[in-house]
Structure formats: C-alpha cells, structure tokens
Amino acid sequence: MAFYVSRLSLGLELRRLGCKTMRCSGVDCRSSSSTSTTLAPRSLADDGKTDKLGRREKKNLMMSESVDKPDLNLRFKYPEMFPEPFMIWRNPVKEKLERKDMLARRNCISIPEFYVGSVLRVNLSNIHQPDKVSSFVGICIERKETGLRASITLRNVIDNLGVEIKLELYDPRLLKIEVLRLERRLDPHLRYLRDAPPEYSTFPLDMKPDINRSDEVPLNRIKVKLNPRPWTENWHKIEYKGIDESIDDLITNKWKARRELLRKPWEKYDLMKTYRATLPEEEMEEILTEIKDDVEEHDRKHSRRQS
C-alpha cells in the first residue's frame, strides 16, 4: 500500500541519515491548560496576541519585510502539520519529509477542517465486508499525534451500545472524510462521554450534513452531566469545562479533599514549562509558509470536485 511504502521509504531515508524515529504516545491528559481556553475561531484569534500587527513586525527582524506572513489562524485547521515540541526527538529532515507525504495524501482526498466535537462520516475500505466498503458516523472525541500518524477517535451509540473507532487521518484505507456538523467544544478531548448518558454521543447513521454558512466555527458550550461512578477515568481530577458542576454530587468528600491537594496554582506561572510545551510563533510561521500554498490548492480542488 502506498501508505506503508511511503512510511518504509521514510524509515529507510531516516536510517540512512542516521536519525531517530518517533515513538508512539500513550494517552495522558493531565495538561490542565487553564489559562487560554478558547479555541480561536476561523476568522480571528481570541487571545488578542496576534491582533496588534505593529508588535509582530518589530519582532521578526530576521524575516524579510517583503515576505507575506502566513495567517497564524491556519494552525487550527492543520494541527497535525506542527511537530510536537519535544526537542530530544525532533528532527527537521524527518519533519520536512513527513509534511511532503502529508501534502501528497491531501492531494488525493480532502481532509477537511474539523475539531474535537465535530460529527464526521468516514468511508473506509473494509476487507471484512462483502462490498469492501464501510461507513461510520460519529463525534470526534479525540485528536492525537502529529505528522503522518495523526489519528482521531469517533464515537457513536448504535443500538444502545457505545462504539468507538480510532482512525488515522493519512491512512490510505480512508476513502472519504465528510464533516456533518462542524463545531468546537470546551475541552481538548471528550473522553468523558464514555461515562455520560448515551444521549450526548448518539448520532443517526444517516445524518445529513448541517450546512453552516457563518465564517466562525461555532463553539458548543454544552455541559455534560456524567453518570454515577464508577467511571473509566478520574474526571473530577481535571477541571473539564465541558462537564457540569453536578459532578461534585457524584464524588465523596474524601475525593474532594484529594482533589484540592492535586491543584497546582503555580503551574500557570511556569513560563519555561509552557515554552517547552509550545512551538514558537516563528516556527509555526515557517511551517505555514511551507504548506500554505499546497494546502490551499488542495482545498480548492476538492471543493470544486464537491460542487
């Protein structure tokens, strides 16, 4: 398969250059990130940091003034293009090659803009089915990993059974990704839907796409009420903005006391920790200038195909 060939060639390339390869990640959602919570809409960044152009111009003395600065809001549209900021495993050659492969795949199918909380329909090539094609509709509860291994988890409750499927965005076995409802949620992942009533995760399998003509991606401020314990994860330990306050009624006083001990009010002042966990703006701009034109071309091509 093309996917495996490209991965193999990438691996051979890297071994030839003597580079390390990235390892798979486990799931860890301890990052509270309580400071900046709003996800930027498509049109404007909420944080007010990119608004004042005057300051940004002064900052980038190294970049030539004539070069067009890319719109940094694009980083929400293509989050898997940005490598993880873990410096020890980073490799600029590997990242460039990966981005090249990713753009090549985006040329074949349209990987649309969506966020955690959007409802997608995915058509897969399924060797197990007699007609070799299967389809799944679900809400995106998670977006993990960067680069070619960027994956999403879709959840739906079908016949009163919660079903989740993990998919890799750049997998050639994905035939089509269609966004049925484009919206954002208050949290970076929605795994707590596993411990919520099924109403929050049920979507009809023949759902029609919600056409939203506004420029901004709507933010769904819904607060989910969880089921009584036991839960699959300790939802009370992290301040999820998408979980209703009634969670306090579901936990014991001892758990509440333990939760107080877990609070780290100093963490938001830890400037170096946030620096190590983010890509600097200059780097984001470099990557965006690299991919911007290709990706716009692909979007145009796929939207033309649709219409």
Partner: peptide, 18 residues
C-alpha cells in the same frame, strides 16, 4: 463480539465486553 480495551486502528471498541 465486543471488547472494552483499546483496539488497534480501524477496529471498533465497545463500551462493554460483549
């Protein structure tokens, strides 16, 4: 016919062990 544990890519994972 259904497993609660994390599954590899493209295999479904159910909320209960069926």
């Amino acid at each position: 016919v259904g497993v609660k544990a994390q599954q590899p890519v493209l295999l479904p994972r159910t909320d209960s062990n069926n």
